[in-house]
Design a protein around this nucleic acid. Structure first.
Lengths: 303, 303
DNA sequence: TAAAAATACTCCATAGGTATTTTAT
DNA sequence: ATAAAATACCTATGGAGTATTTTTA
């Protein structure tokens, strides 16, 4: 029977990530020789080298690569076993890694954290803001427990739960205040300011306006909603912002914010977690608390 | 970070299987206190009891049950990491657990073992004979590396490889020798002898003859092909046997064996293994050697 | 009260630390 | 020549053994 230890897999993963015995050892909070020995032992039991030792950095051998995949899966499964305990406890406690997309995070995180502290005082919240793609990766790798993102996602390994619907609002320069609200379909002709590549809000907006980035030369980009609103205030163009950003982003800029008169676009925001996460039930309760914060004005559930 | 060891999971699995600290310890080749301590430690790190201690036997708590599922998955993944090494070696070696369905095993195992010893001398073959359902379970649990069964199976976690086609032959009492071969479709009117419930060969035969067990009161059952042939020899009825059983089973019985004149029924025999088994490539080579034994007379591949 | 698990203790294997040498560019 | 990994050696944690006590139907 093969005698590898979880410890060896942990060290090996660190070595793969850092590509350097010394730094990997540091990451594992052990000395470099200690890590070297465990790697050596792992190589011995497998009967083949796992890394190629270079003078400046080490790289994985093909066998090392395949082991890495399997090791990650095992380490995730082990971590989930650890979470079994927390799931069994009457009250959820310990660190909870929670992620949110950038177009929501700055406006929603404060109240989410406040509400979760109220409902689950034993929880130690570790918030993170990233784009959807990163959040999904982090969820799957077990570095996040739950993420708040826009639906739909269609990832079979993730559980999704819709929380509330959010409107897209039109932001125009102050000079437009007297003009009528343009129709959504006419926006492709305007100078539209949108978030840079990778933000789901950008894709949603493009989708609603029926725009492909190439076909619209007057499209301009910003890296945050705040920037966009400021640029609109400086008469550079129009933009869309999610409802949630309204109170904060329009405070410091002189802009004209309007709903559309018809075909008001919206997106649905939901919570996501690994289906295999033993904390599932707790995460559902947490998601419900988060959803309740917004569902008063915007109820998705008919409760 | 949770500090669970693979050792603890192994011991816990043994305890779950045996329901008894002493016997589980024996199965793990350690002393009872050693196992008790590891279980206790596991319970401590998870913060909740995993087993309910009874005076005669222990039973898993609900948490223990869920842990068991996850532990098995982890242990299987670890075992597969162990197999990575063997897969990396130039020549496949070590123990290979191979299963076969009962209607093939007695006739085919000898030549399969002989051929595999020739081609893979470092392999230590561990053969087992079981019905399809059991073989599938054993494959998935990692207690079998490869199984030879009838297609189709449609199990998404298993890789299948067709090896050869095998005919179903009609076995009649010696008195029928002068009579013409009945048509396959007329067999449901005859006194048909078939294998008992659970053999895939039985289901295949029923299927070919368009019989449902209930609708045919003259159906009789035996627990082995050998029994069936002997009963046919004793004029008790007719039967079907797979081609492969022919040389052995008809040696010691005075029966009349015939192919059908039309609609000759066949089944396809194939090899199966876990898709995640790192030995996959080796198992493919092994399966090819097995298939080559029969594909001379019965080629499935157009080689 | 009897079978079985928990506890007490002792021992040894091994993970980890520090100091040092070897290696490869 | 230098950064980095391997080796040597020591220490200490903890896993396993034997003997014994506690538990509970």
């Amino acid at each position: 029977m093969i005698n590898i230890s979880i410890r060896q897999l942990r060290y090996f993963e660190a070595l793969a990530v850092h590509g350097h015995f010394g730094r990997a050892a540091e990451a594992c909070a052990i000395s470099q020789p200690a890590l070297s020995l465990q790697i050596k032992e792992l190589e011995d039991t497998l009967g083949a080298p796992l890394v190629e030792r270079g003078p400046r950095h080490v790289t994985l051998t093909p066998l090392g690569e395949t082991l890495m995949h399997r090791a990650r899966a095992i380490l995730l499964a082990v971590q989930e076993v650890g979470d079994l305990a927390r799931a069994a406890a009457s009250e959820i406690s310990g660190p909870l890694h929670i992620g949110m997309i950038p177009t929501i995070a700055p406006y929603f995180f404060p109240e989410v954290i406040h509400a979760l502290r109220q409902h689950f005082p034993k929880l130690d919240l570790v918030p993170r803001e990233s784009k959807t793609k990163t959040l999904v990766e982090e969820l799957k790798a077990g570095r996040l427990d739950i993420a708040i993102m826009a639906l739909p996602l269609h990832d079979p390994s993730l559980q999704e739960m819709a929380l509330f619907e959010e409107e897209f609002l039109l932001v125009r320069p102050p000079s437009h205040r007297s003009q009528p609200v343009p129709r959504l379909e006419s926006l492709h002709k305007a100078s539209l300011l949108l978030l840079e590549e990778g933000h789901c809000f950008r894709d949603q907006a493009l989708d609603f306006c029926n725009i492909t980035p190439d076909s619209n030369p007057s499209l301009m980009e910003g890296s945050s909603l705040s920037t966009l609103v400021q640029m609109v205030g400086a008469e550079i163009g129009l933009s869309l912002i999610p409802e949630m950003a309204l109170p904060i982003e329009t405070q410091s800029a002189d802009v004209c914010v309007s709903r559309f008169e018809q075909n008001q676009p919206t997106r649905i925001i939901g919570a996501f977690w690994r289906k295999t996460n033993p904390l599932g039930t707790s995460l559902e309760a947490i998601a419900k608390v988060i959803g309740a914060l917004r569902s008063e004005d915007n109820p998705l559930t008919s409760a």
